[in-house]
Computed example of a mutant assay.
Amino acid sequence: MISKPVERVLMGLAALLLLALMAVTGVDVVGRYLLNAPLSGAFELTELLLGALVFVALPLVSRAGAHVEVDLLTELLPRSVNRVLGVFAALVSAAVLGFFAWRLIVLGMGQLADGSRSVSLDVPFAPFAFLGAAACILSAIYGLKWGQKDD
């Protein structure tokens, strides 16, 4: 299906994004409270990094089958029904993630055409939309594979 190197790249990106978030926050806090000079654009940078982190981590969560689930009655149902429900949930999730990916591609194309950028740091938005679309597609694929696995 999807190789281990893709997972390693995603984990590495997630780690780098998390480190960048911590660095931005640390520099901003030290600058703001000790030097009376906050990091310019820290709020905007935090928003962008956090959004990227969420999208990079999404396929990893899907691959691990670690999304939040509420299973109030599943223990009362036969194993075969639970398998069918698992496949159904995976199909619905894949469809929703596919829809999100499509809309993010449309959004990214619009942002690319318009040249949309962030206000303070002038960072282009389109790459973030494309990252989100790719993450949603990977998550859908991983989720479908996870939905088919045996208990």
Rank of each mutant, 00 (worst) to 15 (best):
L73F: 09
A37G: 04
V27D: 11
R79A: 09
V87C: 06
Y33F: 12
P127Y: 05
L112S: 04
L144Y: 13
V27P: 12
L76S: 00
Q148P: 00
A52W: 11
V96I: 15
I137N: 04
S80L: 00
S116N: 13
V30I: 15
A57W: 09
E47C: 12
L39I: 03
V92I: 15
L50G: 14
G41C: 02
A57S: 15
V87A: 12
T46Y: 03
M22H: 10
L21K: 02
S120W: 05
A57T: 13
S40M: 14
L39N: 11
S62A: 15
V81Q: 05
F128P: 02
L49M: 07
L104N: 04
G65P: 07
R8P: 03
Q111W: 08
I141L: 15
L107G: 08
V24T: 14
A134C: 09
A64Q: 14
G98D: 04
Q148E: 10
A20Q: 06
L48P: 03
A52E: 04
G98V: 01
L91V: 15
R63S: 13
D122V: 11
A113Q: 01
F125N: 01
R63I: 00
A135H: 01
S118A: 06
L49I: 06
V92R: 07
L19P: 10
L13I: 14
L107N: 10
L58T: 05
T25N: 15
A101H: 10
L121M: 11
P5M: 05
L131A: 14
W146L: 04
A113M: 00
V92P: 08
D122E: 14
G12E: 08
L45C: 09
L85G: 10
L138M: 10
A42T: 08
M1N: 10
L21Q: 11
A42S: 14
I2A: 04
F128L: 15
F130E: 07
F125M: 07
F130V: 12
R83K: 09
L13M: 15
P124K: 05
L34V: 10
A126W: 12
L18R: 10
A66L: 12
L144M: 15
A135R: 04
E7K: 09
N82V: 08
A133E: 02
L121T: 02
G12H: 08
G110Q: 06
S93W: 00
L16K: 08
V68W: 01
G51M: 06
E47F: 04
R63Y: 13
L85H: 00
H67A: 05
G86Y: 02
L131Y: 08
E69A: 02
L17P: 04
F100Y: 15
A94Y: 06
R63C: 14
V92W: 05
E75K: 01
F130Y: 12
P5W: 04
E44V: 02
H67D: 08
I105H: 01
V68L: 13
G110D: 12
F43H: 13
A89W: 02
